[in-house]
Amino acid sequence: MSSLTRTHPTGPVADAFEARVREIEEATLAPQATRSYPALRERQEETCGLRTPFQRDRDRIVHSKAFRRLKHKTQVFVAPEGDHYRTRLTHTLEVTQVSRTVARALGLNEDLTEAIGLGHDLGHPPFGHIGEDVIDRCVKQRFGRRFRHHEHSLRIVERLERDGAGLNLTEQVRDGIAGHSGRAPMPATPEGRIVRLLDRVAYINHDIDDAVRAGVLAEADLPREPIAVLGATGPKRIDALVHDVVEQSARAGDIAQGEEAGAAMAALRSFMFERVYLGPAARAEHGKIELVLRSLFDHYTAHPEQLPSLLPEHDDDLAARVTDYLAGMTDRYCIRQFQSLAVPNAFDP
């Protein structure tokens, strides 16, 4: 048992919980799976008699303000009129679901996989990847820095949530969140590497579904060769890719894709960048999004006294304060803030 003393109420179940989980994991998890104990946190805490450390991390993420804001952040289509388009929240749930499927099939730690999946996109700014690109260019031009959503996800859980106290997540969850992007170093755990790969599996296929629903693509537009390899529908493609990852990973002893499936997925991803992510419809919105975000960035950089205090003590770093505020906005809040600056208020005599 942990050397830390529990101060909350205990009982027979709670007292035996950690020992029982350790026993179950040794009997059922694969040798390379991450064990739930001991909890590796920056600040040591008392143990919980009903949840593993990774389950506690999951709960902290789900109850965070940043997680709730994901429901009003763009996945691909900005402020869509239809109710069935993905948001950053539904994307997060889909990534988590397929990642857990892979983790369970491979005998890896589902709780760790789930926590990483739920937290991986907390740092996404408004307006999806277009918003990320605009903020990155603004910060680079003004302060000589870069903005990357995966790095900001880590900043949120370490520094911004709970009024500056952070969520005090385990080392493995923080590593998986920071490493989920292809621009980041590979996560240290196989569970983190699952989320990194399945994030791409999920978004490529559900973004195709949304693009067809929006009329940006027709089914006939999809490239024939990768569709022939993976399947004609989104569910079939995801099923094929998940099965491929499981079988290839089991053989390789690490998270891996087969050559044929990996090439087909890469071809679909390239197609989506050309036709959807950077296509005519996206470019039509890019200028509007840039106007909104750059106007807000320039305004708050010039008037830092109007920035809210996101931390208990004002961070003297203006770049961080402006970026924290803009990246935390939902799409609709960002638009409202822009309108409050750019549109005259009606005068009622």
Rank of each mutant, 00 (worst) to 15 (best):
V216A: 09
A79R: 15
Q75M: 14
L160R: 10
R88P: 00
P125C: 12
L318E: 02
T96K: 01
L241Y: 12
V292T: 15
V212D: 03
L50K: 13
H149E: 11
I255A: 06
I255M: 07
A66C: 05
P223V: 00
L4K: 13
F347H: 13
G279I: 05
A33G: 01
A228Y: 12
V195C: 01
T74L: 08
V134C: 06
T90K: 05
S249Y: 01
A252H: 06
P125F: 08
G131T: 10
R137Q: 10
T96I: 00
Y85M: 11
A79Q: 15
R69S: 12
M265D: 02
A342L: 00
F147R: 02
D57R: 08
D111I: 00
G49H: 11
R43C: 06
Q337H: 09
V157S: 06
Q141V: 05
L268R: 03
D244Q: 02
R294W: 07
R294K: 14
R68Q: 14
T92Q: 07
E290I: 04
G164T: 10
L230V: 07
D239C: 02
L198Q: 08
F347T: 12
G166R: 06
F17L: 00
I255V: 15
H84Q: 10
E110A: 07
E225C: 06
A30S: 13
T323Y: 11
Y37P: 01
I289M: 14
T34H: 00
L217A: 02
K140F: 04
D15M: 06
H120I: 00
N205S: 09
I194Y: 02
V157M: 03
P80W: 07
L169K: 04
H314E: 11
F77P: 08
P308C: 10
Y333T: 15
R148A: 10
T233Q: 04
Q339H: 07
T87C: 10
E247D: 10
E81D: 13
E290A: 15
P9K: 12
A165G: 13
E290P: 07
Y203L: 13
G166S: 09
L230A: 05
A282E: 13
E110R: 00
G231D: 09
Y333K: 13
R104F: 01
D331L: 12
T189E: 01
L198D: 05
S270T: 06
G107Y: 00
V216I: 14
T10I: 08
D317C: 08
I116W: 01
L198H: 02
V134T: 07
I255G: 04
R41W: 03
C334L: 14
L122G: 08
D57H: 02
V157W: 02
E46N: 05
A184H: 08
G49E: 07
P235K: 04
T7L: 09
R148F: 14
P126S: 13
F127P: 02
R237I: 04
T90F: 10
A250W: 00
A320R: 10
D83R: 14
R145Q: 12
L268C: 04
G82F: 09
E94F: 09
T233A: 01
T10S: 15
L160Y: 15
P126C: 13
A240D: 05
